[in-house]
Each structure stands twice: as C-alpha cells, then as structure tokens.
C-alpha cells in the first residue's frame, strides 16, 4: 500500500501522465489477480479429470462450499456449547441445592473442535513451540557465535540433528513426555506438550545456526568500537553483538517459523494431536464424499496461514531491525 502511494505521488512529482500511473497500478493489482484466476481455472478444469474412489478431485467450487459448511458447523457447535453450559449450570445449581457443601465447577465444553477451533489450536501450538525454540536458540546461538571452541564442540551436534524429520522425533517425544510429564490435573494437555516439543526440536536449528553466524560475523569495525570503549562482555552483547546480529537472527527466525508450521501439521497428523493436521487425518479416515474437498480447504488454509505467518515475521523484522534493505524481501 505504501509502495503504491509512493509510486503515485512520485509519479505526480515527476510529471508522468495519468494513464501511465493507472497502468502501473493496474500491473500491480491485475497481474496477481490474473495469476490467481488462471490458477483457479486450471485447477477447476484439471480437478474434474482426476477420479478417485471418493469421487472426482475437489475443484474451487466444492472448496468454497466446504468453507461455508465448515463455518456453519462452527456456528452450530457454538450453539451446542452454549446449551451445554446452560445444562451444566442447571445441574450444578440442582446439586448445590441438595448439597450446600458442593462447590460447583464449570467444565469446559466437551464437544468437538470445529475447523476454526483447530486453526486456533494449531496457531497457538506453533507459536508456543516457536517461541520456546527461540528462547533456547538465540542465547545458544550467541554463545556459539562468540566462542570458537564452543562452536567447534556444538557444531557437529547441530549438523546431525538439523536434518532430522519431525516424524522421527515424535515417538521419542511422546514416550518421554508421558514418562516425565505426570500430573493429575495438567495445565497443558500432553498432546499439546508433544506437539510443542516436536516443533521446537525441528525449528531450533536454523535459529541457532543463523544467530551464531550473525554473531560471529559482526562487522569487525563494530567489534573494535566495543573493544576501544572497553565494553563489559554483557554490555558488548547488549549494545553491539545483539543489534548487529538482528538481521541474521530474523532470517533464522523466519526460516524456523516456516519449518515449525510444516512440522506441526505433520506432527498433528501422526500423533493425532488437536489441530489442522488432525483435521486432515480425520477427514482422510472418514472417507466421506466431502472429505477431499474439506482436506483441500485445509490445504489452502494452511498455505494462507503459512504465508501470513511469514509476512507477520517480516513486519516485525522491519519494525525491529535497523537493516531495512534486508527486510525488504
């Protein structure tokens, strides 16, 4: 939008004729629209050609219909939830009437998670895993970047764990979590903890690597400034190393968030942890005539959310980082 305005005013100053500006705007808006239209057309045409045992591959129209259905299901489920709470309130009131010592407890709705709930669950999970990973990765990356010996000690470990698929971690994570995370009334569900840890294990590495590279390759002049000023080690990190590495750290964070999102969907599918991955798996298992179009809807939603997450990170990077040229893309 900003670019558009700039282009507009810039054109006015330089005295470009109005049709030229219009053309420029048209290009910026029309080409993506054209691309999407062509994709939809091609998708619609090709989808009909693919015949599966669950009917033909869903086209744009059936996906649009499922979007509507999923929303309606969400609304219906909310209504059911309201009724649930009402019944519960009444039941609690009845019991209190009989047994004044009873302290009524409001229990969360036990019905199914709707598609929208599952989107929310996935988002919360991915952000938790990602932030947890960042809280380990960035300090570790700084330490590794600052200390050559530490780097040489840890680098092989990073290189070995970096290419490991989430699916390989998952069984181990599940077993370890059930062994160690024992509580009668856990604050977090085990499935949530499993997902978060799996996501963390997979997205921690790009952040460690990028942070350490950023830290170890801080402009030597800035390092010298710190030396000449005799900054204490902590102050050196705070005033020079950390700000200087922000662009590299953000590059790592963006990579990590992308990985985190992909990993989460896979982990949810495999471990049946609530979220979009489970939604897809359940629909696949259901094998109903609307399953494929629902899965396709989820695929598109996953894509859009992944895109928005990346844009979001980019916006934060632009806001936080001093290096505007790096954040342009």
């Amino acid at each position: 939008m900003n670019a558009l305005i700039q282009r507009f005013t810039g054109a006015a100053e330089s005295g470009e004729s109005l049709p030229l500006q219009a053309l420029a705007i048209l290009k910026q808006v029309a080409l993506p629209v054209l691309g999407i239209a062509a994709f939809l057309l091609l998708w619609g045409l090709l989808a009909k050609q693919v015949d599966t045992s669950l009917g033909s591959f869903p086209g744009p129209a059936s996906v649009a219909e499922q979007v509507k259905n999923l929303y309606q299901e969400h609304v219906a489920e909310r209504a059911k939830a309201d009724a649930f709470y009402e019944r519960q309130e009444k039941r609690n009131a009845d019991r209190v009437a009989k047994d004044p010592n009873y302290v009524p407890k409001v229990r969360a709705y036990t019905g199914k998670e709707t598609f929208l709930d599952q989107i929310g669950t996935s988002l919360v999970t991915v952000m938790s895993g990602f932030l947890l990973a960042a809280s380990f990765a960035i300090p570790l990356g700084i330490a590794v970047g600052l200390s050559k010996p530490l780097n040489e000690a840890i680098n092989p470990i990073i290189q070995i764990f970096k290419p490991v698929s989430p699916l390989a971690w998952l069984p181990l994570v599940t077993m370890v979590v059930s062994a160690l995370y024992v509580s009668d009334d856990p604050f977090f569900a085990k499935s949530f903890v499993n997902s978060v840890i799996t996501v963390m294990l997979c997205c921690i590495w790009p952040m460690v690597i990028n942070t350490s590279i950023g830290v170890s390759s801080v402009n030597s002049d800035w390092v010298n400034v710190g030396k000449v000023l005799r900054l204490s080690p902590l102050k050196n990190i705070q005033k020079i190393v950390l700000p200087a590495s922000i662009p590299a750290i953000f590059t790592g964070m963006r990579m990590s968030l992308g990985i985190a999102w992909m990993v989460l969907i896979a982990a949810e599918m495999l471990a049946q942890n609530p979220g979009l991955g489970k939604f897809i798996w359940d629909e696949f298992q259901n094998g109903s005539s609307s399953s494929l179009s629902r899965i396709m809807t989820a695929v598109l939603v996953i894509g859009v959310i992944g895109f928005l997450l990346d844009r979001g990170m980019l916006m934060i990077q632009r806001w936080v980082s001093w290096d505007k040229s790096q954040a342009a893309r």
């Binding site: 519960q88 039941r91 019991r95 036990t110 059930s178 085990k190 499935s191 049946q272 359940d282 298992q285």
Partner: peptide, 26 residues
C-alpha cells in the same frame, strides 16, 4: 451428562495408540 459425567470423545489413530492411551491414562 445425566450421570454428571463430562466426556470428551477422541478418535484414535489405531488400536495400539488407543490401548496405550488407556494404559498411560491419557
């Protein structure tokens, strides 16, 4: 609900996962 039970019903991936779920208390 008539029994005062608030039940969440969860589909499981396979019989092994289901059995482990009951054994571990999940």
């Amino acid at each position: 609900e008539d029994e005062g039970l608030y039940v969440t019903i969860e589909a499981q991936a396979n019989w092994k996962v289901l059995l482990d779920g009951v054994v571990t208390g999940r």
